[in-house]
Design a protein around this nucleic acid. Structure first.
Ligand SMILES: [Mn+2]
Ligand SMILES: [Mn+2]
Ligand SMILES: [Mn+2]
Ligand SMILES: [Mn+2]
Lengths: 142, 142
DNA sequence: CATCATATGTAGCCATGGCTACATGTCAAC
DNA sequence: GTTGACATGTAGCCATGGCTACATATGATG
């Protein structure tokens, strides 16, 4: 139905990319928050800001948006906590990120460059693409 | 020097992704403008807007930004023209885009999904990653 | 040459995601 | 208990990239 050939669901391929971008910040933030919990036992906003390369103001305001999306909880001057939903998102984002990095390395991209490129690429990989990547890495690395 | 391990040049890997995103619109626009020139002999703003899945207002304003970047020229009620610089960017963006699509297809991603995912992925692929993709597609497709 | 559909342009709204400058809170060390 | 360093929060700025509603231009058709 409709004059639409692009796969996803709505419309134009560019819409899919824009949708990816609107989820990107949430994914990167919860992944970083989970990392800091592992590394430091807690996630303070200043550390989070440094990790993401933004000012603490930006981090603070973005975290407030994540609260309204139900991904994290905060209380004044306290560390940032993930909700169940946030933890789940962090887990899947991390898994996806690792698939992409490993894949890039397995096709011969130097590790540092794979790390850098994967940070953007990860958000645009549909399940089918991830499946192809995973399959390739596995058969390549025995 | 510095406490920096990430590849590109500045700082944090997230900075690289943000830089990619700030070039993305320009790349997609000039590529689409060049396509419409091929297909229709000229690029009218309304067709461009439809192609990109945005309102004509958004297209118009974005084109104005491209003018100030020296990528296109406009005059009122006339078709949009690419500058030499714009044509060059369109050419490299198109070539890069094709490398990414062909590569995704060659690892087994269905064509429609490869088309959709590549629209975002293309902007995050450094020269090294493109080289690895090109090499892989070539050796795989004989 | 008047009319009208369509294209183009403009005004003004919104959310996001950056920032600096400043204000306030917290906590450890003296 | 004060003090001072550092963390956190707030006010308010900016650019980008979306939009709707409305105004005007253009060009084909009667
Ligand atoms: Mn990322
Ligand atoms: Mn992207
Ligand atoms: Mn493209
Ligand atoms: Mn694109």
């Amino acid at each position: 139905m409709a004059t639409n050939k692009a796969g996803t669901s709505q419309d134009n391929v560019f819409h899919k990319t824009r949708r990816d971008h609107s989820n990107e910040i949430a994914e990167d933030y919860v992944e970083a928050i989970a990392q800091l919990h592992s590394e430091d036992g807690a996630c303070r906003v200043t550390r989070l800001a440094r990790r993401l390369g933004v000012s603490h103001v930006t981090a603070n305001r973005t975290v407030a948006r994540l609260v309204s999306r139900g991904l994290v909880t905060t209380s004044p001057y306290q560390p940032i906590e993930l909700t169940d939903s946030g933890r789940r998102l962090a887990r899947t984002a991390k898994a996806r990120h690792e698939i992409v990095i490993d894949f890039l390395i397995s096709i011969g991209v130097p590790a540092e460059i794979a790390t850098a490129d994967s940070e953007g690429i990860e958000h645009h990989c549909s399940p089918e693409t991830l499946k192809a990547m995973k399959h390739f890495s596995n058969t390549r690395n025995h």
